[in-house]
Amino acid sequence: MMPRWMAGSFSVCLLAALSWAVWSLPTAPKGLTAESLARLAESGVTNPVTAVLLNFRGYDTLLEVGVLLLAIVGVWSLRRADWPRTAGGDFTMLAPFLRVALPLLVLAAGYLLWIGAFAPGGAFQGGALLGGALVLAVLGGRGRHILNRRDLLAIGLVLGVLVFVVAAALSMLLSGGLLQFPSGQGGVWILVIESAALISIGLTLGLLYLGGRPSKGGLPRHD
């Protein structure tokens, strides 16, 4: 920890520099809007963000899915999961809600994935929703039988990376370029990749919430 005056003066200097920089930025930056819109048609989707994320800069996303997997592996390597305190508590309100909400959330996640091709949405958004659903389920004491199966979970977690890698390798065989999807088929490829990614992202986010590896003998019960 640094003395406040020192940290303060650092921060003030930093702020001054940043403001100076920001004010000198061109008011109409060049950006890559024109290029991305011009080649949007070739990408297989009509939502430009998805096009960037999974096609133009799909390689970033490949590594990013790797980051997700690495993060959860890291968390698992660190500690065992804590079963949330609320678990095993009074579910009179939560349980009926979950019964309705969980299927809806899963459905909504799927919808977000699908719509990502045309409008805001996509695997990450869907995955976030799925992760949220998982957290809710955990809080409501559900899904223990799944969470006990570390082997199954592992498969779900790596699914995104593996499908992505296979797609990358396959595209390379087919068209000679890493992640270069055969022309006209971009949409399908993206959908496949995103579907796998959706599952992994959702699982990862939900399991990150647990903060550790599920213990072998099942999670501790509180009832």
Binding site: A28, K30, G31, L32, A34, P48, V49, L53, D60, T61
Partner: peptide
């Protein structure tokens, strides 16, 4: 900030990442 009908998708994708 970019001129044009839609915002630049590249920084948005970066933000997602």
């Amino acid at each position: 900030q970019t001129p044009g009908p839609v915002p630049d998708p590249v920084p948005r994708a970066m933000v997602l990442t």
